[in-house]
Amino acid sequence: MTIRTLLASASQDPGREARLNLACDIARAFDAEIIGAGSASVEQVLDDAFAVGAMTGEVATLYQDMAESEVRDNRANFERTAAARGVQARWTGGVGYPAAIVNAAARAADLVLVAARSPGVPFRAPDPVEVISGAGRPVLVVPTAPVRTPVGSPAVLAWKDSRECRLAAAAALPLLRRASRTHVLTVSREEDVEAASAGLAEVQAWLSRHDVKASSEVLIRNDIPAARRLLDRATTLEAGLIVAGAYGHLRLTEWVLGGVTRSFLADSPLCLLMAR
């Protein structure tokens, strides 16, 4: 199991340059190809009962031209970055809903890189929640300014004995093998510490069989939210990567985040690898 193809969102958002350079770092580490996916939606023209139809059409054409221009700029920026870093790269994208374009392109990738939530740019960058829930691939959520690289730094596996966490851990193995150390952490009630420790020992042994150097630690639950405890401990450990399952449930057509997933996406200054 390795990483041969990365898909990186190349849309305009505040963290684009850091994300593309990180994609190049990972590509160089794994001799992988990068697919750049850049898109922009055409913003909806609001109907005005007093507006002339031709004027509404002109505004719609202007929005279309602006979106096409932005996609061209996205592509040029991506190709410049990839050429400067000397990595194999190709382009996909166009005018359309950003998350839909990334999710469709994910069929050709082993790992997808997107930004954390970027308020104010719903038409310009894919929402990480929509990508995590729809891409069918592990997703590396990259903050605007990562405090550390996820390649070669310590890593934290935020363990919960769930399907989602097992998928994330398996998907993260290539990066965990490159980590200087992997720390398997879980938050448990005091009365459940013995059982939690036994479960972490099995995860640690599984990681060892995949050539991942790992330790484990149970954090006793207290009044501090579990996500905050894990983020604080990851910071203390100087981690560059947190691996976690993405938790949520479907409400009609909406995927509603669980509390830990929501907090990780909102608050993590570290790269966050998630799977669902």
Rank of each mutant, 00 (worst) to 15 (best):
L252T: 12
G245I: 04
D110I: 06
R117M: 05
K213S: 12
L113R: 03
R28L: 12
G15T: 05
F30Y: 14
L230K: 05
E164Y: 10
R124H: 09
V243T: 10
A23H: 09
L140C: 07
D31S: 15
V151E: 10
V121W: 06
A100Y: 03
L230W: 06
A239H: 06
V243M: 08
I35Y: 02
A84E: 15
G258N: 11
A234C: 10
S208T: 09
A214M: 03
Q88R: 07
I132S: 07
A40I: 00
P174C: 07
M55R: 01
L157A: 14
V71E: 13
A29M: 09
A155V: 15
A89Y: 01
A226F: 02
A145M: 08
S133F: 10
R189H: 07
I242M: 13
V142R: 04
E17K: 08
D127T: 02
V184H: 08
V129C: 04
A201R: 08
G94A: 05
A109V: 04
R137P: 10
A27R: 07
G15M: 03
R107V: 14
L7K: 03
V193R: 15
S188W: 07
Q88V: 09
S153L: 04
D65R: 14
A170F: 03
F123L: 09
S197Q: 15
A239I: 13
A195P: 01
A115N: 13
L241F: 09
T92M: 05
